[in-house]
């Protein structure tokens, strides 16, 4: 299974999201073409109700612990409750450009 599909499956099972968007942003970074290293996740779920942002991120990080340890280099996370999502009119912020990550440029 691709990393993207793994992330989607695990978060769908773990958080029962009302909305889940997993975007592979690796092409915007200093990695070979076709990489699955940089992801952006937007997840809207009732499971985040009454949880701080740190607690919400911890829930996601825990579900994706294996991927974060071994496969994902960067994970942009936007974690919303149903109400947050309505307040935001269904849009999450854009991720930043790469800047090189300290790797030597080819």
């Amino acid at each position: 299974m691709t990393v993207q599909a793994t992330i989607e499956t695990k978060l769908a099972e773990g958080l029962h999201p009302l909305h889940l968007q997993v975007e592979n942003e690796s092409h915007r970074h200093n990695v070979p073409p076709g990489s699955e290293s940089h992801f952006k996740v937007v997840v809207v779920t009732d499971a985040f109700e009454d949880k701080s942002l740190v607690a919400r991120h911890r829930m996601v990080n825990e579900i994706l612990a294996d991927e974060l340890q071994n496969r994902i280099h960067a994970l942009a996370l936007h974690t919303y409750t149903r109400q947050d999502w309505e307040d935001k009119h269904g849009s999450a912020p854009l991720s930043p450009p790469c800047l090189g990550g300290g790797k030597r440029q080819a």
């Binding site: 942002l53 740190v54 991120h57 911890r58 990080n61 612990a65 974060l68 340890q69 960067a74 994970l75 942009a76 996370l77 936007h78 912020p93 930043p96």
Partner: peptide, 25 residues
């Protein structure tokens, strides 16, 4: 702080989060 990614911001010795949380705050 059992937090897998960088950057990390600490205020008064407590982790407040990484990029997404700091920006949201």
């Amino acid at each position: 702080a059992n937090w897998p990614t960088f950057p990390q911001v600490y205020v008064n010795g407590e982790l407040i989060g990484g990029c997404d949380i700091t920006l949201e705050l």
